[in-house]
Amino acid sequence: MNLRERYDTATAAFEAPFAVVDLAAFRANAADLVRRAAGKPIRVASKSVRCRALLEDVLAMDGFAGIMAFTLPEGLWLAAEGVSDDILVAYPTADRAAIAELAASDAAARTVTLMVDCPEHLDMIERAAGDRRIRVCIDIDASYRPLGGRVRIGALRSPLRTAAEVAAFAEQILKRPGLDLVGLMAYESQIAGVGDLPPGRPARGRVIAAMQQRSRLELARRRAAIVRAVRNLTDLEFVNGGGTGSVEKTVAERAVTEVAAGSGLYHPHLFDQYSNFTGRPAALFALPVVRRPGPGVATCLGGGYLASGPGDAIRLPVPYLPTGLSYSPNEGAGEVQTPLLGRAADGLAVGDRVWFRHTKAGELCERFDAVHLIDGDRFVRTVPTYRGEGRTFL
């Protein structure tokens, strides 16, 4: 039985559109992340999963510890549900009501750590939290700036870059009785989030690989200096870095105590573009064929599930099974219909399914209120996504 037949058999009782997670692939991807982390704990990036049941499953596996949440309300919810007792909110918050809610709970205040990178964050937290001591983590700019800083490669995140800047900010935190500095974080998006095997562009891939090597060496030296400077001021519980695309490179730094990862569990098609690891597609969605406009064309219902980021063709999901299908250049992935072109279309009848892979990981769960968990050709159970639990945080 081939892969498409297994998927169709396992989900025969369901009407498309729907989403699935292939548990065998999910487990294999998790095991490979642990192998690459070489003994350092992996903090699960919930943004890339967005399903409470699957977060609980992966946290029960050896090698995973803690959650990296994407909003404070999400972190509070996961803490209240007992999903983890160690939740780092990866992005600064300006949600005063959520900070007050955090401060009102002994358990949440012990569990949730907030991200900060400027005095305004500290002021807002202290005003909203009152007398409660709040755990905070400093976000560090991990971008690469060659040519004397005239070029910036990487995400626009923290304004704090040098050891002196971070240490000075740490001193500000330590002077505030309402704040506990417990960690540092630096996300090297230009390494962890950019593949060095862009399809059909080998020369660009070589440029990316060279940039990443230089960036990795620069960041390793700078991150080590930052960690030394802050540890001279206070003890730290953790130093977080990296992502799915850079796990083995990030954990090689002695200064890093843990790595973040999440996308590698689902392995969306964006992560096919990395030379340092190979994952198995674990999260997919199925669309029904609803019409046949002509030879070499099969039209599916829905499908316009574009990923965030710059507006380019790679943000489109890819037709996965059967192989050999492509989008109409005039329609692409549509809101209510998606025509697919190719010889494989002639083997599809109305009511058949086409299986797709999303560009990114957790964003798929914003489109579906549940995912069907399958193992081989067996249906295991259906679990709600964040959306299915009424939790649309962004």
Score class of each variant (00 low, 15 high):
Ile87Lys: 05
Ile191Leu: 13
Asp85Leu: 07
Arg201Asn: 14
Cys118Asn: 15
Leu156Gly: 05
Gly183Arg: 04
Ile140Gln: 01
Arg206Leu: 14
Asp180Asn: 07
Glu188Cys: 07
Asp139Gly: 03
Leu174Asn: 02
Ala100Ser: 15
Leu102Gln: 08
Gly195Gln: 09
Asp141Arg: 08
Ala164Phe: 05
Val89Gln: 04
Arg152Met: 15
Gly183Gln: 09
Thr111Lys: 08
Pro177Ile: 03
Ile134Gln: 02
Glu165Gly: 07
Arg110Ser: 13
Ser84Trp: 06
Leu147Asp: 15
Leu147Lys: 12
Gln172Lys: 14
Val207Lys: 00
Val112Cys: 08
Val207Arg: 10
Leu179Asn: 02
Ala203Lys: 07
Asp86Leu: 13
Ile153Gln: 09
Leu122Tyr: 04
Ala128Ser: 15
Ala109Arg: 12
Ala186Phe: 07
Gly200Lys: 08
Pro199Phe: 05
Ser84Asn: 05
Ala203Trp: 09
Gly200Phe: 08
Ile87Trp: 05
Ala98Trp: 06
Met124Ala: 10
Asp86Asn: 15
Arg204Gln: 10
Asp139Asn: 07
Gly195Pro: 11
Val166Phe: 00
Gly178Ser: 00
Val89His: 06
Glu120Gly: 10
Asp106Ile: 04
Leu147Ser: 13
Glu101Ala: 14
Val194Arg: 12
Arg206Met: 13
Pro92His: 06
Ala164Thr: 14
Arg127Tyr: 08
Thr93Ala: 01
Ala97Phe: 10
Ile153Asn: 04
